[in-house]
Amino acid sequence: MSEVVVVTSGKGGVGKTTATANIGAGLAILGHKVVLVDADIGLRNLDVILGLENRIVYDLVDVAHGNCRLRQALIRDKRFEGLHLLPAAQTKDKTAVSPEQMRELCAELKEMFEYVIIDSPAGIEQGFRNAVAGAEKAIVITTPEVAAVRDADRVIGLLEAAELTDPKLVINRLRPRMVQRGDMMNIEDIIDILAIDLLGVIPEDDHIIVSTNRGETVVQDQRSLAGQAFRNIVWRILGEPVPLMNLDGERGLIGRLRRLVGLG
């Protein structure tokens, strides 16, 4: 049983590509056959996030235009057995592919892989419409900021119009200390506003920047909180009801002091 999942957000810079890479790698680590599709034609990034930028020969547009066979464009990630990338073209623009071509492509990939995960570009124009065209499920990424949540709300409406009902939410870059101070919206606040199911919460984590610098994922990093959060998301995608990580537990002196005086 395979599925085609689109990862989208409306707003740029909230972590779509990082989430796509980590969820894909996480599924592959657990033995699943996964292909990640970079649908951001003209601004490809999934290749650099995965550290596969030097291995691209053909891309998604080549496949859509019949310049090569699908298998020739797929890049196998040597670190994770079962993980593949179909890169976006860098020199074309969004109009180089049609929603109909994307639907055909997704159908073909679905025959070959258990999980087809599409990294959508920011925005709600043709690139977005291409990315959702062949998808059966959707993951919406947001951060606890007014602009990101607003754009997520808009995207949820558009997904529903495209018959992708019941999208799942990932809240990225949550900062527990700011939440505790009352200076950042918390999980309940965001769910309350968007009214969709929560798939997971990723805390802000320096490990992400370090691993991105290296072209590596963080999901296999046992010391990383974000890595743990991504592993939990992967389990939930596989149907395991993993509880949310406790992000409130403040470590360090201040946290202990607070608890001591009953304010924690």
Binding site: V146, D183, M184, I193, R258, V261
Partner: peptide
């Protein structure tokens, strides 16, 4: 001690 009711998140929400 982080018990301020009117944190900026209320404004955001």
């Amino acid at each position: 001690f982080g018990r301020e009711e009117a944190g900026s998140k209320h404004i955001a929400k």
